[in-house]
Design a protein around this nucleic acid. Sequence first.
DNA 1: GACATCAGTA
DNA 2: TACTGATGTC
Lengths: 289, 289
Amino acid sequence: MGYHQNSVCARRGNALVQMQVQVASMPLIMLEARLAQANVFKKVVDAIKDLVQDCNFDCNDSGIALQAMDNSHVALVSMLLQSGAFEGFRCDRNISLGINLGSLTKVLRAAGPDDILTLKAEDAPDVVNITFETTSQDRISEYDIKLMDIDQEHLGIPETEYAAVITMPATEFQRICRDLSALSESVAIECSKDGVKFSCTGDIGSGSVHLRSTSDVEKPENNVSIEMNEPVSLTFSLKYLVNFCKASGLSTSVKLMLSSEVPLLVEYPLVDGGSHLRFYLAPKIGDDE
Amino acid sequence: MGYHQNSVCARRGNALVQMQVQVASMPLIMLEARLAQANVFKKVVDAIKDLVQDCNFDCNDSGIALQAMDNSHVALVSMLLQSGAFEGFRCDRNISLGINLGSLTKVLRAAGPDDILTLKAEDAPDVVNITFETTSQDRISEYDIKLMDIDQEHLGIPETEYAAVITMPATEFQRICRDLSALSESVAIECSKDGVKFSCTGDIGSGSVHLRSTSDVEKPENNVSIEMNEPVSLTFSLKYLVNFCKASGLSTSVKLMLSSEVPLLVEYPLVDGGSHLRFYLAPKIGDDE
DNA sequence: GACATCAGTA
DNA sequence: TACTGATGTC
């Protein structure tokens, strides 16, 4: 019987085994994830904390994932931080860390932007341990956040073939949402081969923004690209889109994926290629618009 | 009988004498203190006005001093502005100016940060006169604040030899207090030779910040220095400490002085070396922690 | 990203 | 009146 099994016994209340383990000073860390830039995690949590109060961070050897519906069940958040996004990553067993994002925000506020952030959890943990180290190591702060049991609403999100995929600068999308939200509650997104049109109508008048597909080879990050199978036009709540745009600082570009009668997918790629922060938003239908 | 006694008569209500004095335009100024930067005084008052409503500014030829307990008698504020801190300072006789800090704040709000502030008071004054001059002298504003009688609780504060004296950047201390106050009402400060640890526990979890003693010769103002006679660990109310930290703008560094079972002294040096703003806070004991 | 200001709440 | 969260500017 190795340390691994001992640890399980300890957690189940075998005090003797637990003592032995502690005497052997064997902290049974199951998860240790070291992120070079605390900022990335801060921004991710900032971007989703207004949508979701509590959620599970599902950890396994491929990384840390999160999925949660917003309170009104209109939007869905999905994050994936692949192990490769970390400076060091170890996860010996699948664990789900139920965390209150308000508490997490309070703790992350204590991190300097360039601090090194390390998440640690034991097997069957009560708390998640978060440390921030300045690069100079003169200051080390350490926090434990109590975990909570959160009903895992398992959300099968089918990988859809979208009718249209728009890639554009994240700041541009943020600006459009902010500008149009001054006029109306909702925005229509219409996509055709050579362009995309965001439009809305409200009490004081109406507005629209047309973006042409561009291909500036010198500044590819400023490009708007549209991959389209068929034209699509859908209407969405601007309040939610503005909210999603809090993630704009995480990435230079954002992808909007649309299909008729299917939730819009707003995707921000993270640090490495595979990691991402995704928001899904159901379209408004008929009179809702 | 000199002017001096005349003035006393006038103050005692002899209208005839008062008129004569006014006609003779003889303002019997006892105190005139000219401060090059109104900002210093603004910040001092800002930093203490939430702790103390009314207090006496005790003026004598060595400067202006202030001592007051907070309302709950847990904390004590002590300020000393030595005469040398002023561009010009004259105080012919000891006077105690009882001022409502709310009123004073309202008046100080009218001062530009770089204005020259002058405090004036007559002998046995009803009011304190405050003027603000722009450095260019284009604008002079003048205010009188009514004085009040405040019971002088004379507070003998013994100069203690502290078990530990920590000097650190004021902003760092402010940040630690702010960060930890998100988790708990109180913080334990533990001091050992090579470092100091601030830690707390609350409903959502626990947190701690370790600072190592540093000696960066290039940026000495960023250093953390610890002079320690014996290890010490005490617990304090974070609400008060956060409050004290409003003084952070007054000084790059702050000194924390601790001894067992004795109030913590938090000291911000002011303009010149000798002047200071000090806060004392009784430790929490036993179950209070 | 940090700061200051502002509005709303306790 | 003071603290909190939120917003907008530097």
